[in-house]
Amino acid sequence: MSAAAPTSGPATGLLAVGAYAPPNVVTNAHYAARLDTSDEWIVSRTGIRERRHAAAGETSSALGAHAVRDLLTRHPDALEGVSAVICATSSPDAMFPSTAALIAGEVGLRGAAAFDVSVACSGFLYALAVGHSLIAAGLAGRVLVVGTEVMSGTVDQEDRNTAILFGDGAGAAVLGPVPAGYGFQSFVLGADSSGGPHLYLRGSALRLPAGTEMGPYLTQNGREVFKFAVRTLGDSAEQAMREAGMSTAQIDWLVPHQANRRIIDAACERFGLPLERAVVNLDRYGNTSAASIPLALDEAVKAGRFKDGDQLLLAGFGGGLSWGAAALRWWGGAG
């Protein structure tokens, strides 16, 4: 199906997490008053009740830096030894300098290697895999991974098919050595460009897949993306567990990309997992693309939901069309 492998080298896991969401709450009523939609229509089809929007001029790097500072409130020494910063975003401040470099400068990591990963909603999982690989190769001791998005600026706010879905936010995590038996056990990454026309954002591209329009906003074929997501999230998650030498029956927590409640429910049904064992905050944040999984992780940690030794499964999908999954044994020291 895709590139997949059990992890190797010293045990590497999450040492600390943090998150930030702008204070501006945009409810379904906001769109119901302006567009041909309603709260009932949005909730029944997506599960979303509200989302956050960044203030005018507030960029992805600003949100990302806030998330790192939140991380530091609980783990003040987490950035010590960080020698690389990876930012997953599809709404960068600029093509260059990288959003990662801007965040690094804001949080006192000038001189660290810094680069962006652009895989839309799968980006945070790709960034985690790259960060893990840097540590395993001896190129970094600790890695700061940030998923941050200002998606409200990428969608046409007059288009009910996309405006209602996306929100803004950021999450951050520090990767580093954890005790043996904990940490990442496998990663699954993949992409299929034949599905590219179903979900794309032009950016500065001069060439697009045949049949796509040259508009400035995110464009999505919701029906096709939904079918892809239901199939791929389940397949990649099962593959990640197999690579880790386990079955889906051993999952304690599913931490999925937050795109649609029906997709998450379908994954739980496939794995035989009670719905309350899926971390879901979609109703309050909408789809925050690369920020959705770290936002969900942080919320679960702050609520004390993860216990030492819990088996986590992280899974996502997005533009590309792309997918990613990771099996992770939770180390309680990150709480």
Rank of each mutant, 00 (worst) to 15 (best):
G18L: 12
D93L: 10
W41A: 08
A326C: 07
W323V: 00
F228W: 08
W330G: 11
N260W: 04
R74G: 02
Q185V: 15
T288G: 00
A240W: 02
A325D: 10
F187A: 05
E213S: 13
A267P: 03
L72Y: 02
Y200D: 00
G18H: 14
L109F: 04
P209W: 05
R52S: 12
G318T: 07
G319W: 02
F271S: 04
G18M: 13
L218P: 07
P76V: 05
A67N: 06
F124G: 05
Q258N: 04
A129G: 13
D39Y: 03
A136L: 04
L165W: 07
D159K: 09
A259H: 08
V150M: 04
S292V: 04
T59N: 13
V225S: 05
F166W: 01
P294E: 01
T248M: 11
L233D: 00
L15W: 04
A244Y: 00
A112C: 12
Q311F: 01
H132R: 13
L35P: 07
V119F: 08
A163P: 03
P22W: 07
W41R: 08
A180E: 15
A244E: 00
S122N: 10
L175Y: 09
S8F: 12
D159W: 10
V225P: 12
V178D: 00
P97T: 02
N24M: 06
T12N: 09
I164T: 15
L314K: 05
E158K: 14
G195R: 02
D159E: 14
R207A: 11
F271N: 02
A84P: 02
